[in-house]
Every structure is written in structure tokens, then in C-alpha cells.
Amino acid sequence: MLKQSLCSLALAGSLQAVGLAQTTSANLNVVGQPFVLLTPGSLSFGTVTLTGNNILARHPLAASSWTINDRSGDGRGWRLKLRGTNFTRTAGPSVGPGVTTTIPISNLGYAGSGVSFSGTGNTIDVANAYNVPGSLNNIQVATADTIVIQTSANGQGMGRATINWPTSAISLDLPYNLAAGSYSATLTLTVDDL
């Protein structure tokens, strides 16, 4: 009995000595990052001269790209929404009654049918873009998050994409009776999970 046990031990030692396969693991932690929205420094319509009639001012779109970067790594779909405040008069000469000093944000609109998205690695569901009730050609911005610029389905939308606005796609209706001066509004892009 003792001899048999010794033989068994010897055999085991011999097997290890000739190098049987060993295993180890290779580990990788993929860490999701917060979603990033990059908005332009400003969306300036420049200077417009009043005419006595309503005016449709069009934004030249210089340096106005808006970037979406889905770094979450969770594959969840998301919605990109737009809202804004009314344009208020921030400077100008004193004016009498009868002139308007506020431009409703609903006067700001864009032609949704011409907007496209581009970028590296993104798989944005363009078919679901401009998911806004009503006309796609004259989408009015509102003070609430009612305008969905882009919807990305689950499993899509990961990576970085840039919103490409066609030339003159963003417009602002100026009433005939606006007071001369400078006006400013704040546009807010919001992205959240589906």
C-alpha cells in the first residue's frame, strides 16, 4: 500500500515536469462615459435692417455644428430634443409704445427635411429623424421639449455624430413692428434615454 502511493506521487510529479497546459485570464474593463453634447458658441443671425414688413431672417450656419457623442456603451436608444426661450431685447434706443420688444421662440424654425447627420462610428437611425408631428418643412421651436430633432433606436446611435444643417435651414420670423436693437434667446439641446 505504501509502495503504490509513492508510485502515484511520482507519476504526478512527472506529468508536471513535461509542461501540461496552464491557463490564465485576460481581463478588460470597458467603462462607459457620460453622453456629450457640444453646442456652438452662439447662433448669430447677424444684423438685419428693418423694412416695415415682416422679414424672414435666415441663419448662415457658419460655425454652428452641433455634436452628439454617445459614449455610454450601453446601446440604449436616445432622443435629442430642442427648446428655447423667447428672444428678448437686450440693448437699443428707447422706444415708444406700439413696437414689439420680444420675438417668440416659435418664430424660430428649421426645415427638418434637409437635416443630416454624419460622423465616425455612429449608426444613427436617420429614418427616424425629424420625428415631429406636423410639417417637416417648417418646424417651430417651443419653450418646452416638444421638438424631437433625432431619435435613435435601441442598439443604434453609439459614437459621435454631427448635425449638419443645410444652408439657410434655420430661420427666424421678424414681425414688422419690432423695435430696433439687439435680441437674445437661449437654445437648449437635451438628450435622454428612450
Binding site: 456652438p40 447662433l43 448669430s44 447677424g46 444684423t47 421678424l174 430696433a180 439687439s182 437674445s184 439641446l189
Partner: peptide, 11 residues
């Protein structure tokens, strides 16, 4: 996640 930008015009 939200991001804001000013929109301006001078008349």
C-alpha cells in the same frame, strides 16, 4: 444631458 447656446440677432 443638456447643452445650451445663445441665439442672437441685431435689428
Amino acid at each position: 444631458v443638456s447643452g445650451s447656446t445663445p441665439a442672437t440677432i441685431t435689428l
